[in-house]
Design a protein around this nucleic acid. Sequence first.
DNA 1: GTGAAAGCGCTAACAC
DNA 2: GTGTTAGCGCTTTCAC
Lengths: 340, 340
Amino acid sequence: MPDGRPTRSRVTIQHVADEAGLSRGTVSRVLNDEPYVSDEARDAVREAVRRVGYVRSAAARSLVTSRAGAVALIVHEPHVVVLDDPNIGNILIGTNTVLSEADQQLVTVIVDSPRDSERVVEYLRGGFVDGAIVLSARTDDPITRAIIEIGLPACFVGHPSDAVDISYIGIDNAEAAEQITRRLVATGRRRVGMLASGLDRDSGQDRLAGFRAALGDRYDPRLVVDDPLFSYAAGGTGMRELLERAPDIDGVFAASDAVAAGAMDHLQRRGIDVPGQVGIVGFDDSAWALRCDPPLSTVRQPALTLGEDAARRVLLQIEGSTPEPRGLILPTEVVWRGSA
Amino acid sequence: MPDGRPTRSRVTIQHVADEAGLSRGTVSRVLNDEPYVSDEARDAVREAVRRVGYVRSAAARSLVTSRAGAVALIVHEPHVVVLDDPNIGNILIGTNTVLSEADQQLVTVIVDSPRDSERVVEYLRGGFVDGAIVLSARTDDPITRAIIEIGLPACFVGHPSDAVDISYIGIDNAEAAEQITRRLVATGRRRVGMLASGLDRDSGQDRLAGFRAALGDRYDPRLVVDDPLFSYAAGGTGMRELLERAPDIDGVFAASDAVAAGAMDHLQRRGIDVPGQVGIVGFDDSAWALRCDPPLSTVRQPALTLGEDAARRVLLQIEGSTPEPRGLILPTEVVWRGSA
DNA sequence: GTGAAAGCGCTAACAC
DNA sequence: GTGTTAGCGCTTTCAC
């Protein structure tokens, strides 16, 4: 027994049938709550199941029905980011809630290396899941390609992916960034900088684009500092850099609340008053926003709803329909607090 | 479409065999990298696979091998906690790394309701995974019971679970709490309080016990404030309460870094100097610790290692051996910084 | 209502 | 080396 599983020859549906004095077919019907089964038979089967300790094999079932009863949430991010991103958690919660109600098992899968990537492709192709929700998908990516190729019901979150024909859901990062930057400028700021992050993907690029659009002629590329990570630490170092480049800076748009918090702390430790001397706004309306003092003005990203809707869209596809329209952009909201 | 028939049916190993002019058996051997296959056959199969777009069915495979190639990480916590706990992320990373190397797919499953719980039991019993790593398991719990009943290779993390015969791994919370409290006392603090959390589980209780043990006669139950959540907010409200009960308090042991950070901020906002007037120590050595100013003295919990070792133990069991000893307690380390 | 039987797609003996 | 075949445990016609 190189296999490891304790030698416990599986109790099959046949054992139950024997025990109940019925046929496999009838047992199967009872198990699946199908009609046309007498009450006696039903009871007999239930009793027999209990007595023999029957456990139905998902593999066998899945083989014949070709459904697994599970949906994957694929988090395509380096580990570090997974821990820090405040949205992932909420997306996870939203997804889990909806799926749970539909009696589908959510399985979260993290992709952090080419090897992970390959294995996940195998996993998806193998039929372990009936659908997938993909976070921060890349357009040119083995996983994305596999999903398209096998026609797996799927929904991308946070990435319009105009190129491919897969359902998606997200927010308008550019529009949101533009709005909050305008609002910041409206407080009378003349020298406004940005702490950009994640410029390697759409969300990051779009936020920068929105910032730029809001500033128009006043946009100065020298007042944009970027760091790949949306992190608290990046906020501190980025703010220092910004102050060096422009000591007279009086407004900052940070690409995430964590970054904003780092920037605010940096300013305060140097005795610069927020919002008195410098106004700061963030993005996400995550837990960070309220941990700041003064609390952060920021953009509320409906992460929970994003997760819920993504799940619903996948469920819809599993049932055979096609969500219309193909993509959904959820509205964001500027939450104005004391930091600017 | 392999032939002219309007079948939308799945491409099976038989199609590959036909295309390659070989038998199912040979194709299977190639697919599984088995020896005793000629190079020509190997190439022919690979070529055929590509041409017909073959995807191997995990269900069929799993049905006959009774192995799934996946391991579950079961996070048994309310959603809110999942987001805030700094250890979960690291455990996840450690687990994923080890499993990835063993070519096993990690699937993370969150349990947040009785319904989730039931479904997960089904999931485990169904054979979708070959093993499970369980975070904060309860002893009397459907999932724990199911794991025992079906003899699923498993490892509990962070919970000694003396009662049941399942491999586990954790840290000695009481010992760690006692050590850091002693160290705090050694800085000359006379009135030391605790911000306790998670008293509904072992880890929380043990930390309190350790705190108490360190204080001995000086332990005063009135100086223990507790909040169910290990959160930043709990730290703030708890600290306020503690100050009301004992304005002369000069030392605080917080059950987690997040709680400690909340307490420190509260003190500083009231103009109380840390560590001058009050010394604070935390627990976890999470990202919070360095975000504090002064940085937090705390207990380093080897969360990453915890995850790695748990994964190794499950892998071992899947291969048929039994990890010895049954349980492992990893050492913690006091990290002394500026907050006390 | 219930039973019998035909697969689902694959692996693993066992023959050749 | 390769082909043949007997299942793995279940659902699902189709008779009765």
